[in-house]
């Protein structure tokens, strides 16, 4: 599906006539939460029988953290724009098990995204995009052998309002992406999906339309 969506966007870029308008800077800042990144299914019934105090599966996720995106938006018509964005989120990997929740290590989540946004009714905008995402962190624990570059799909909806010649935006967004790493594979584990979601405020300088 990700490949199909990417092909759709690329072909759109190729066949569309030269845009009537110039690309404009697009700046966004948000607060994003995340579903579980990795779960450890370590306890078998046999192990629980041997060690009665053995707890449930520990899991790790990115804690709620701010996120910045910068890129360009190119109007393709009166109601549709093409967005290209680079995103940066400094986050903390948090683990939860029977002993509680604790911070494990700092990480940086980087992504690149190519998307389309449509003006629906009034200030309402909806959009989606595809891209790639990578988690970077010190080489220890779950990140001992790094992490994969993984595909990302985004869906967003919100509003866009003119203000003093600029455009101000508010978006609720949901990202779905894969997470995998050499350590997971070496341990016989599997990559999996992550759901990242949150709110963004943005501005397109000079972008009122």
């Amino acid at each position: 599906m990700v490949v199909a969506a990417s092909s759709f966007c690329l072909s759109l870029l190729l066949v569309l006539p030269a845009a009537a308008q110039q690309p404009r800077l697009d700046l966004r800042a948000g607060l994003l939460a995340s579903s579980t990144l990795v779960e450890d299914l370590l306890a078998t019934p046999a192990l629980k029988a041997r060690f009665p105090g053995l707890g449930s599966a520990p899991r790790a996720r990115a804690a709620l953290a701010p996120e910045l995106e910068a890129g360009a938006t190119l109007p393709l018509g009166p109601r549709v724009a093409l967005d290209g964005l680079l995103g940066w989120q400094p986050a903390t990997l948090q683990a939860t098990d029977d002993a509680g929740t604790r911070d494990v290590q700092r990480m940086t989540v980087l992504h690149a995204l190519l998307g389309l946004e449509f003006a629906a009714r009034g200030p309402l905008v909806v959009g989606g995009g595809v891209g790639m995402i990578r988690y970077r962190s010190a080489a220890r624990g779950l990140f001992a052998d790094g992490a994969d570059l993984a595909p990302l799909v985004r869906l967003a909806a919100g509003g866009r309002w003119p203000w003093s010649g600029h455009a101000l935006t508010v978006r609720a967004l949901a990202d779905v992406h894969r997470f995998g790493s050499p350590l997971l594979r070496a341990a016989g584990g599997s990559g999996g999906g992550v759901f990242r979601y949150g709110l963004q405020l943005g501005v397109v300088p000079g972008g009122a339309r």
Binding site: M1, E39, V153, A187, G189, G192
Partner: peptide, 23 residues
């Protein structure tokens, strides 16, 4: 359609997992 695509992706989205340790 986008929302539908996202729901399909979510349905297939078990998180990454480490396997149980053999006893």
């Amino acid at each position: 359609r986008l929302a539908g695509a996202l729901l399909v992706l979510l349905a297939a989205c078990d998180s990454a997992a480490l396997p149980p340790r053999p006893s």
